[in-house]
């Protein structure tokens, strides 16, 4: 019995991570669909199979995320801000002081101390601006998967302004840019800048000038980190597996 499982039941994806003495053994992700408990169980089963372990090897399961209370087999649940802070602190070797999480439905900016204890935080209200949903919407309009945005943005040749951070207004702005024949590449770059502006507005007051750590599903897009660096005028570091920081924090949580 040595495996600690962290489960992050998020709004768009369910992430699971197996750890042993703080080290990651396995990680997996599935999209969130109705019946989150079954999805989480399926992830754990997959993890056991792939890491060649037995159910009896699991010492602890801690859940987090919006759906944390839906997984009845978890011994404890921890809120996602606390889990994110603990995960980021451990993964950065205690260096992270400001962590920005761009999730499917929200953005969080967290100030942590060297032990990973939350000192302060900010979170967007009920609005999809700057979240993963915003990227999904843009992907549909640009007819390109989100994973292509980096490549598109890198090939941008002209500066284009996307003024709206509101998902609804941005949608009509993107449609009109496309109608004017603006290349997708320029729009993708403008999209990153627009989201970065929104994030900087939220997180700015919390930053103390040190490097900022970026995680959450949207952090897999390197272009977002670059745009955020430009906007916040500070170094932005991205964890190796940014989508799993919160699940990792739950797994190693001191709860």
């Amino acid at each position: 019995m040595s495996i600690r499982v962290g489960l992050d039941l998020g709004s768009t994806a369910i992430k699971a991570i197996f750890t042993e003495e703080g080290k990651c053994l396995w990680r997996g992700v599935l999209p969130t669909v109705p019946g989150q408990e079954a999805v989480a169980s399926a992830l754990i089963n997959a993890g056991l199979t792939e890491s060649k372990r037995m159910r009896g090897d699991i010492a602890d399961v801690v859940s987090t995320g919006y759906g944390k209370k839906l997984f009845a087999c978890a011994r404890a649940n921890v809120d996602e801000i606390t889990a994110n802070a603990e995960g980021a602190a451990k993964l950065s070797g205690g260096e992270a002081r400001t962590v920005i999480n761009v999730g499917g439905q929200d953005i969080k900016a967290i100030r942590v101390d060297e032990r990973g204890v939350v000192v302060d935080f900010r979170m967007n209200d009920k609005c999809a601006a700057g979240t993963g949903r915003f990227f999904e919407l843009a992907a549909r309009l640009l007819d390109s998967p989100i994973s292509d945005f980096d490549w598109l943005a890198k090939n941008s040749t002209e500066e284009v302004e996307l003024n709206s951070t509101c998902a609804v207004f941005a949608e009509s702005e993107i449609v009109s840019l496309l109608a004017r024949g603006i290349p997708k590449e320029d729009i993708a770059k403008a999209l990153y800048a627009s989201v970065a502006r929104r994030i900087a507005g939220l997180a700015g007051p919390l930053c103390g000038g040190e490097p900022v750590y970026l995680d959450g599903g949207a952090a897999r897009n390197r272009g977002l980190a670059e745009a955020l660096e430009d906007e916040m005028m500070t170094e932005v570091r991205v964890f190796e597996h940014p989508q799993f920081t919160v699940a990792y924090g739950a797994a190693v949580s001191s709860l």
Binding site: D79, I81, T82, M123
Partner: peptide
């Protein structure tokens, strides 16, 4: 989510 995190502090 916010209140839970705040509670932890």
């Amino acid at each position: 989510s916010r209140l839970e995190a705040y509670r932890c502090t």
